[in-house]
Amino acid sequence: MKGYERRTGQRLVALGLLGALAFNYPILGLFNRAVTVLGIPLLYAYIFAAWALLIAAMALVVERGRAK
């Protein structure tokens, strides 16, 4: 149980740091251009997609770790 807690904690912290990078300069700047994806401005599409992925990863870390 202890090992699970520590491991999950570290994985979540890593995800948090990854998110902090993804939603900041300079990564964010790469998507800040006048291009559209399926009609949606690239920046908006990127932020929401990355956000959803981040949440999915967090869910995976929390829920899968517990099942073991």
Binding site: E5, G9, L12, V13, L15, G16, G19, A20, L54
Partner: peptide, 10 residues
């Protein structure tokens, strides 16, 4: 909040 909540575990 999405980012900080990842640290909530700690």
């Amino acid at each position: 909040p999405t980012l900080i909540i990842a640290l909530w575990w700690v």
